[in-house]
Design a protein around this nucleic acid. Sequence first.
DNA 1: GCCAACGTTGGC
DNA 2: GCCAACGTTGGC
Length: 142
Amino acid sequence: MASYILKSEPAVYSYADLAADKRTHWDGVRNATAQQNMRAMKKGDTAWIYHSQTDKAIVGIAKVVKGPYPDPDQPGTTAKGDPKGVLVDIAPVAELEEPITLKALKADGRFDELGLIRQSRLSVMPVPAALDKLLREMAGVG
DNA sequence: GCCAACGTTGGC
DNA sequence: GCCAACGTTGGC
């Protein structure tokens, strides 16, 4: 099962918002690379929620409950006939008791290949299975 | 279709 | 608040 990191500004939509909503459409992803990553997601995949700016930490785990499917806010299709934009639905799984900070990830050294560190602006990125395992160990889940 | 200019994001 | 990185836009 695949694993991803979804980045969000907590001022806009935080893990607490997701926990309150029980489920949300992860929309507003316009970046082409992030869109590509979202297209690869499947129902049941893991989604780590990362807060940028004030927190700069992974604060919770969610799972993909639907998707990807065409984003009604980005109508139309590409030249290839694919939807221009897709989105997924996610539901909260657990909030981390101790958020995994960006600082900790950098200090660890084993996460250097992670998109979060190498390409900080990317808002949706895949997590290799080995690193997903590490994150679970650090988070004390799974 | 290429490339420079510009805007946005996010870490520090 | 600043700066670096990167994506996007628009002129050619």
